[in-house]
């Protein structure tokens, strides 16, 4: 059967050890997680965890059910790619020892709607957000200059339009 990429969003109570419970569960149950990111939400005391995993449909179902069993997990949803905006933020430190390299990298960054956030004598840090293919394409381009360092946040995701992933009540 086909291994597809799946996206899961979990809304969790912001209590000690929650991330440990979630990540421990995922590895213990042998789920292959590609990325996981966490941050605050519109509600005080509720955090949002976004997970990307590769696997079959049944695996996705098991992950969601197992996550739902955690006491602090209030809501879990599998999210379809077509109905959502998926973004990732990346910082890339590129080798720019020559003047021409510097100019070119800045140009590419502009084309990709990235920003130069740090300039040193022989390197630059570019910040870029976007979906996976855009980011991968940019990193590939940078390789010819020499990529010194890449830091990716992991994906974060939001459904388009009417559908809202949130918790009712106070």
């Amino acid at each position: 059967m086909e291994n597809k990429t799946h996206y899961i969003v979990a809304l969790v109570e912001d209590k000690p050890g929650v991330m440990q419970r979630v990540s421990g569960l995922l590895s213990r149950r042998n789920f292959n997680i590609k990325s996981i990111s966490v941050g605050a939400t519109e509600k005080l005391g509720i955090s949002r965890i976004t997970m990307t995993l590769k696997g079959q449909e049944e695996v996705l179902e098991q992950v969601i059910k197992q996550l739902n069993k955690l006491i602090e997990v209030v809501k879990v949803l599998g999210i379809e790619k077509d109905e959502s905006v998926i973004r990732e933020l990346v910082l890339i430190k590129v080798n720019t020892a020559t003047v021409s390299a510097r100019a070119e990298v800045v140009q590419y960054a502009n084309i990709f709607r990235g920003r130069v956030v740090d300039v040193a004598k022989d390197s630059m840090v570019i910040e870029i957000t976007g979906d996976e293919s855009k980011i991968n394409a940019f990193i590939e381009l940078m390789r010819s200059y020499g990529v010194k360092e890449v830091a990716r946040t992991g994906k974060t995701i939001m459904t388009r339009g009417k559908k809202i992933v949130s918790i009712k009540g106070k």
Partner: peptide
Amino acid sequence: IDPAEIGK
């Protein structure tokens, strides 16, 4: 009673 057991 445990939904995670269904189909596991």
